[in-house]
């Protein structure tokens, strides 16, 4: 009796399990497995596109950096050029100024020399006059004096 009862009980429980326990749980597990698999695949795809975007971005950054470097180089070169130009111009200007100044100084010097020469001769004449006034008769030596004055 116990044996039979246990067999019957077992059949009932197995039937119950087969009907009401196993299928819903398996369905839930399989659906979740599918969902997880999908999620993982999506994550994989996301990772791939992220990698791609990162590669693209680093390419872009590299290009930009290269461009910036070349621009910088150009600017540097241009600046150097400008400086060199400026320097050359400055030198030229200085020389020009220097030449002008030198010429002016020379001119001034000549002029001063002329003036000085006139003054010296005047002083010489004046001092000679004073000397002659005392010692020489102006009338007697007038011809010499006038000759001297003419020579001066």
């Amino acid at each position: 009796m116990t044996l039979l009862g246990q067999t019957i009980a077992m059949i009932i429980f197995v039937w119950f399990c087969m009907k009401f326990i196993w299928p819903p749980i398996m369905v839930a597990i399989e659906e979740r497995q599918k969902e997880i698999a999908d999620g993982l695949a999506a994550a994989e795809r996301g990772q791939q596109s992220l990698d791609k975007a990162q590669a693209e971005a680093s390419d872009l950054v590299g290009d930009a950096r290269k461009q910036a470097t070349s621009i910088l180089d150009q600017a540097q070169a241009r600046a150097n050029e400008i400086i060199a130009d400026g320097k050359a111009e400055g030198v030229k200007e200085r020389e020009r100024q220097l030449a002008a100044a030198t010429a002016e100084v020379e001119q001034e010097t000549n002029r001063a020399r002329e003036e000085l020469r006139g003054q010296v001769s005047a002083i010489a004449v004046a001092s000679a006059e004073k000397i002659l006034e005392r010692e020489i008769d102006a009338k007697a030596h007038d011809d010499i004096l006038s000759k001297l004055a003419a020579e001066l």
Binding site: M1, Q6, A9, F16, F20, I21, P23, I25
Partner: peptide, 30 residues
Amino acid sequence: ALNVDSMFFSVVLGLIFAWVFGRAAKKASK
């Protein structure tokens, strides 16, 4: 002869199994 105690406990334990797993199965969601 029927072994009442064995039958009783085995059926009760079977019912516990059915209840616990059945409840989980009923509420099972993905």
